[in-house]
Design a protein around this nucleic acid. Structure first.
Length: 199
DNA sequence: TTCAGGATGTACT
DNA sequence: GTACATCCTGAAC
């Protein structure tokens, strides 16, 4: 198993967002391997996108990460209690990223259940299983991702994205596109079909 | 099964 | 002071 190389992230952000569907987000957490198959992403492109934190070249302490080299993790705190994780795309100096909006956990479920709900996996309700990591804040909680992971290079061991995961078969996936979620403020950009998901 | 309302801290103006 | 790339709960259907 190997992580995706930097060239993967260097490309056009919409392409990266689409191709990240079906890949595996892997994180080594206190000795256990947590892994989830990516099921939903969104592209954010600073140069042309009013929904992007770095729209129009905005540079602040928070958005600084978006200008980092491709393959860097951009993690920020939102709504007082959640985190969102992105992967920076395109060359250094260009502000763009892909938000990870959902994964299906495939490894480390026992540890992940305690992180997510503070309960054992066997004790989870049907609803809790359904809602396990199908949202940007949920997947961060399920995989213990917080601001400590901001600016971390994903082209390295310990925290990365990969094409294959032991025991998992990569099926042909039908990918849908739609407008992005939760960006009503973004005027014309809110209509852009930059959200990708497994149909 | 869907929906409104509230929780919560920080970045930015 | 305000807005925020969200999620959970409980109540209505």
């Amino acid at each position: 198993m190997h992580y995706l190389e930097r060239e993967f992230y260097r490309r056009d952000t919409l392409t990266v967002a689409k191709e990240l569907i079906g890949k595996y987000l892997v994180r080594e957490y206190e000795g256990t391997l947590l892994a989830g198959r990516i099921t939903e992403t969104e592209a954010y492109i600073g140069a042309i996108d009013k929904a992007c934190h770095a729209y129009g070249g905005r540079k602040t302490e928070r958005t600084r990460t978006l200008y980092e080299p491709e393959g860097t993790a951009y993690v920020y705190f939102i709504y007082g209690m959640y985190h969102c994780m992105n992967v920076v795309t395109e060359p250094e100096g260009t502000a763009a990223a892909v938000l990870l909006r959902g994964v299906e956990m495939i490894h480390g479920l026992e540890v992940s259940a305690r992180l997510r709900y503070g309960r054992e996996y066997e004790e989870l309700t049907r609803r809790q299983l359904q809602n396990f990591a199908d949202g940007p804040g949920k997947l961060c909680k399920a995989m213990a991702i917080s601001r400590e992971q901001n600016r971390v290079d994903l082209c390295s061991a310990g925290f990365y994205i990969t094409d294959t995961f032991p025991g998992c078969i990569n099926e042909e996936l039908e990918i849908g596109a739609s407008p992005r979620i939760g960006i009503d403020y973004a005027e014309e950009a809110k209509e852009y079909p930059w959200r990708f998901y497994v149909k």
